[in-house]
Write a protein that binds this DNA or RNA. Structure first.
Lengths: 133, 133
DNA sequence: CTTTCTAATGTTATATTATTACATAACGTT
DNA sequence: AACGTTATGTAATAATATAACATTAGAAAG
């Protein structure tokens, strides 16, 4: 484990939800997660949302805001989930996390007209993926 | 009217919804819009959502995805709503549309590892606004 | 080991956001 | 006038998310 990354031991529900999201090749929606973890004893939406909230907080997963869906983090450099970028195919809905040092550097250092600097950002690109073009 | 911008005559419901969003100093949520236009004869959520969808499509308003709220476009350069950027204060929830030629140019030209270029993006920055700092 | 504190869990109910389905009306074009 | 298209009206319901409150589990201190 990296020295820089704080260790977060996942609780039971968090682990169950994370395992599912992590295994998935596509972003999962909260109620789809709920349906799929009911056999593991999670019965209510709130149990899922609480686990998701915490997992987002510690950067293990990200929320795709335009889709209300969750995807595991595949970018070791966004450990605290403060700088996220995704590409989304508008046909097949495939979502990929973008790991670009240049992009991340540009946005992290971006200052607006008032000189305001931001502590966090989320960027979603839309277009057609290779397959769908 | 700019030569570049296509003229879109708004229909009755679209105009009612747009007028409200346009007057507002903060992003409005769909059901808050509904409540506020009931005196104008709009009675159902769907009427609001249809107007919002169309207004977003033609670039008169934008959706703040992380807040499920809508704000009028204040950026003459994003006429077709394909390149949007906002700053969001995490305390007071003030939202401002960012107009930065540099940012817009950088993102519009951004290509990922596979050389994929995108037709659209939405960027949301989070931090504390002047007042809340 | 037991008290205390905190975080996580369990459970029910409900709030909020958004869409499906279908019927009708308005409008431009031929 | 007939036709196709877009907008509207309406009811019902689906999908997403949170409030409120009770209970349990685990860590830390004495």
């Amino acid at each position: 484990m990296s020295k820089m990354q704080k260790e977060h031991t996942l609780t039971k529900n968090q682990q169950i939800v994370f395992d599912l999201v992590e295994k998935s090749s596509e972003p999962l929606k909260a109620y789809s997660i709920l349906f799929n973890v009911q056999k593991k004893g999670i019965k209510a939406p709130l149990q899922v949302y609480r686990a998701l909230d915490r997992l987002v907080e510690i950067g293990k997963i990200h929320k795709i805001e335009s889709r209300n869906a969750f995807i595991a983090c595949h970018n070791s450099s966004c450990q605290v989930a403060k700088a996220t970028a995704f590409s989304i195919c508008e046909i097949c809905e495939k979502v990929t996390e973008i790991s670009s040092a240049g992009l991340s550097k540009y946005l992290t250092n971006f200052k607006d007209k008032d000189g305001m600097k931001y502590s966090k950002y989320n960027l979603e690109f839309f277009g057609l993926c290779k397959k769908c073009r």
